[in-house]
Design a protein around this nucleic acid. Structure first.
Lengths: 161, 161
DNA sequence: ATTGGTCAGTCCAAAAACTGGACTTATTGA
DNA sequence: TCAATAAGTCCAGTTTTTGGACTGACCAAT
């Protein structure tokens, strides 16, 4: 199966993977959330090859995750900014960061600290139910296929196996 | 930079990307969360090449995200189950699903529905502050380098630019 | 007793993606 | 005039991914 064909699948994760599923995209976006906007900065910080970085930025722009914008002319220079669609990836990056912090940080703790301005604490955001407000326990969430959805998602997890 | 070298970086997202950052891993894990456990099922559902699926499963096992377990002998047959570390990826997959649902689902709505058993609603989990309980607005979260952390994360986003 | 099916892979050659590094173009500051 | 900065492009070599055929052990039906 080719890269783009994956997007035709009846699964939102598969469709998202067309844009996000490679070695670099998530780290690039993570840097974007830290405020890094320029080609040179990204390249230096991430040590990604220039070719690959160019391709990723083009792809993210094509998918409306980043916006390429001139910050000067003569010579024209561009920076990359998160769009609304891009900013909506914050929960993904943030939970990924939590996971990496838990399993891959050294004894001294996570390399990046996040502070919630509203309450002042250093936090690792957690997943909650928007209806009842309780923290989500994965075993309390059952998945099922939307009745009229096409495709064969026959195996669907019920509650708390 | 080589695949594994990326893991040496001072960034939890970079380290996570060593395991998760490719075309297939996230969709494979997504299927695991739906209860799919067997090689043939994954291959048929995802249409991934057998070679790649083998490699991904081996990698996920090596990184302790999945556990390979015999469910019969003669002939030996194996299934793949999420470990605790794997289950801890639920928030990542779940927020990714939210994003895909928002930007890539058709008019009829998301292909997979998730129901919170505790309160009975179909939900899309949201990110909350574990301290004050409020939903997270990314602009209310500032990131900074842990003071003694090595590496050069010079550009760090302050609050609400 | 043979045939066909299931399952978890392995093996291969071709195609696609990624790599480091040199190069380009236009400007500014020393 | 020389060096530096910035956002890329270009190239040839390496690494990954691909589809599809194949394997080996069993089972169930003819």
């Amino acid at each position: 199966m080719q890269w783009e064909e994956l997007g035709a699948q009846q699964c939102s994760v598969a469709r998202s993977s067309v844009v996000l599923g490679d070695r670099w995209t998530l780290v690039i976006l993570s840097d974007c959330f830290l405020g890094v906007r320029r080609f040179e900065d990204l390249q230096t910080r991430l040590q990604v090859s220039r070719t690959t970085l160019t391709q990723r930025l083009k792809k993210l722009e094509a998918h409306n995750v980043l916006e390429r914008r001139a910050y000067q002319s003569n010579p024209a220079r561009y920076e990359y900014r998160l769009t609304e669609k891009g900013r909506d990836l914050y929960p993904v990056i943030s939970t990924l960061l939590n996971w990496g912090d838990k399993y891959y940080s050294d004894a001294a703790g996570p390399p990046i600290l996040r502070q919630h301005q509203s309450c002042g604490h250093d936090i690792q955001p957690i997943l909650c139910c928007p209806d009842c407000g309780e923290p989500i326990d994965p075993r309390q969430v059952s998945a099922r296929k939307r009745p009229d959805a096409p495709g064969f998602a026959e195996v669907i997890r019920g509650p708390a196996r």
